[in-house]
């Protein structure tokens, strides 16, 4: 579905007492393919570039270099019609169910906006479509006349999902869709997303920092650190046997809701470095317990290991 080729996104920032120009490398040379029908998760900690990558995939931002292709077509070489089609086929579900719905629009207008923009349904037909969509995401049809602030967070997230589904997309990019929700509501939304995927054959690009959720929902997982992809693997393999030291540390750090599996995690030292001044060589080497000679001056490539996996580490492969 999507192909990313050496995609890089840099931002110019001014910082420090002299307001010197610096470059923030939000995404730094990412190669990645999203296959039709799969759920690919992007994981990483804050500032690793996963949300920037989502915006690049959604054609909300232009890569500084590299290419993003959707079904073979470069996103920035499309004509108007192709962009329109792209906007229908690729939709997004947002993190914050409070900020992602226009507070001055009724639910019917919010969900129906895509139908209006793409001229898919009007008048009574549109109303009927909206009601149908609300029902599919588990909201009562009366919700159509209400404003977003009348709903709880989970219900708002359902509205956001109905909006994304309205234009019958093939791909849904979900940026932390459950992280702002209460635990009991998270599960409802995850179940809803999984059900919709099966019913409609959707492709998900799922962005999350919550590895428990990622393990639960994904087919494949891409781990990002400081703008780079450090590991890419089928979810089952990754969680059974993480290869990159960062992935291992990440998995170790997740508190498992099972006291019998209590363990002393191998705690990573230090903070994530700034993407403005990333360390030379492997971006992870200052925190890496396994670093050795080449790590501080040679950037490891993302190399395939085994059948469907790839890892960027001098220790592996």
């Amino acid at each position: 579905m999507f192909e990313l080729e050496a995609v890089t996104r840099h931002y110019a920032v001014r910082q420090g007492p002299f307001r010197t120009r610096a470059v923030l490398r939000a995404v730094d040379g990412v190669d990645l393919a999203v296959h039709a029908g799969e759920t690919l998760s992007l994981v990483g900690e804050s500032g690793c570039g996963k949300s920037t990558l989502a915006r690049l995939v959604l054609r909300l931002e232009r890569p500084t270099s590299g290419r993003v292709r959707y079904r073979g077509q470069d996103l920035w070489e499309m004509d108007r019609d192709a962009v329109r089609r792209f906007r229908r086929e690729v939709q997004m579900v947002f993190q914050d169910p409070y900020a992602s719905l226009n507070p001055r629009m009724r639910v019917a207008q919010i969900v129906g906006e895509g139908l209006a923009i793409h001229g898919l349904a009007r008048g009574a037909e549109r109303d009927a479509r909206v009601r149908e969509l609300l029902e599919q995401v588990g909201l009562p049809p009366e919700a159509a006349g209400a404003y977003p602030h009348e709903f709880s967070g989970g219900q708002r997230q359902r509205v956001g999902i109905a909006r994304a589904l309205a234009v019958e997309p093939r791909v849904v990019v979900a940026d932390e869709p459950v992280s702002a929700l209460d635990v009991s509501v998270q599960a409802q939304i995850l179940n809803l997303l999984q059900g919709l995927r099966e019913d409609r054959g959707l492709t998900y690009l799922f962005i999350s920092h919550d590895l428990r959720v990622v393990e639960h929902i994904s087919d494949r997982v891409a781990v990002m650190y400081l703008g780079r992809l450090v590991e890419l693997a089928p979810a089952a393999d990754l969680f059974r046997e993480p290869l990159h030291p960062y992935t291992r540390a990440l998995l170790d750090a997740v508190p498992v809701p099972d006291p019998d599996r209590r363990r002393e995690p191998r705690v990573l030292e230090g903070d994530v470095p700034s993407p403005i001044a990333p360390p030379p060589g492997c971006p992870f080497h200052p925190r890496c317990p396994d670093r050795f000679e080449p790590c501080d001056h040679r950037v490891p490539e993302l190399r395939p290991t085994g059948t469907a996996r790839a890892v960027a580490c001098h220790r592996c492969g």
Binding site: A187, L190, N191, E215, H216, V254
Partner: peptide, 16 residues
């Protein structure tokens, strides 16, 4: 509701 609790398996529906 939480993935990874005893008795939940990846891919299953969560008991929300």
């Amino acid at each position: 509701s939480i993935p990874g609790a005893p008795g939940t398996r990846p891919g299953d529906r969560l008991r929300a």
